[in-house]
């Protein structure tokens, strides 16, 4: 699938596959949360209904051209990042960009959103963005620390190489088992990256009226949903590739996705929300030192 016709077919099909996976995961998330709260919950493809409803709204308001372009940048940027994250049988683009590239590509959609939200001229939105950027200093730094440790240990910054090395060594060399300190730190970071409780400070519906989404309605909100649904499997895949040895087959891939997401969701379902500075302090007190300790141990072993 990494050359010729197969490649082209994959490039075209992959967004749809990813969106479909995202819908399933999103629906599963809502169903599971409902179950934890002893509710029945919506159907498994509820996100699809939401997206269709939003995209077919008959009136839409915009606050200017940046607001429009931001939505294209949001979806476009996420789709782009998705191509650079290797999944089973499809890693053509990882030769053009390693994990450092992916890390930065991941910032393109939020940047687009931030600009669009800025133009909506709503302080709730601006506060949401301000919080989102501040949270970067929490989870993103932790995630980077764990990645630096791995890259140093294996002598490569390519996500595909790291994945291959773990697959060759078997489950014992999976990041989360070989370097548990880094793995645990990264799990915290994942929770923050997916913006789930207790780090759900960006949306905070009761506080800042869903922050960035405040002025988004109709197709604008629809595109944010589409972006979220594509980004969901992608972000889980990044964690999987670094710490769970990636996946060799699609069955393994989907199983790992759902297991990992379940872990995130159950934490999300039972916790309240930190304040922004509380979340930052938490990241700097526990996960980041854990990751740093893990890196020190890798260095000590290497000497």
């Amino acid at each position: 699938m990494n050359s010729g016709i197969g490649l082209i077919v994959w490039i075209i099909a992959y967004p749809f596959v990813s969106f479909f996976l995202g819908v399933l995961l999103g629906g599963y998330g809502r169903k599971l949360t409902a179950r934890v709260q002893r509710r029945v919950g919506p159907t498994w493809i509820q996100p699809l209904f939401d997206v269709i409803k939003l995209m077919t709204k008959q009136t839409n308001i915009s606050h200017g051209y940046m607001h429009d372009v931001a939505m294209m940048m949001l979806v476009g940027g996420t789709l782009m990042t998705m191509y650079f994250v290797p999944v089973p049988g499809f890693h053509y683009f990882s030769q053009f960009g390693d994990y450092i590239v992916v890390m930065y590509l991941l910032l393109v959609p939020p940047l687009g959103m931030a600009l669009g939200v800025g133009q909506t001229a709503n302080p709730n939105g601006s506060i949401g963005i301000s919080r989102a950027l501040q949270m970067l200093a929490g989870y993103e730094i932790t995630l980077v620390m764990t990645f630096i440790g791995f890259a140093m240990k294996h002598g490569t910054t390519s996500m595909y190489e790291l994945m291959k090395l773990q697959q060759a060594g078997g489950p014992a060399t999976w990041g989360i088992f070989a370097e548990p300190l880094l793995g645990i730190a990264a799990l915290f970071a994942l929770q923050g990256m997916l913006n789930e409780k207790p780090f759900e400070v960006i949306i905070a519906p009761h506080e800042i009226a869903t922050g960035p989404m405040t002025e988004m309605g109709g197709k604008y909100l629809g595109m944010m949903f589409i972006q979220h649904l594509i980004a969901l499997p992608m972000e889980l895949t990044i964690f999987m590739n670094l710490f769970l040895g990636g996946a060799q087959s699609w069955v393994e891939y989907v199983v790992k996705l759902f297991v990992l997401f379940t872990l995130v969701l159950v934490v999300n379902a039972v916790y309240g929300r930190f304040k922004t500075d509380g979340a930052l302090r938490f990241f700097w007190k526990l996960p980041l030192p854990l990751a740093a300790l893990g890196v020190v141990m890798i260095m000590a072993n290497g000497m």
Binding site: Q37, R39, V40, F49, I61, E215
Partner: peptide, 22 residues
Amino acid sequence: MTSRFDMERFGIMPMVTPRQAD
């Protein structure tokens, strides 16, 4: 909204701002 009657069964959810609501 909550576990007794659970209106999310029908896809009905509370939303925060008028822009998002139907």
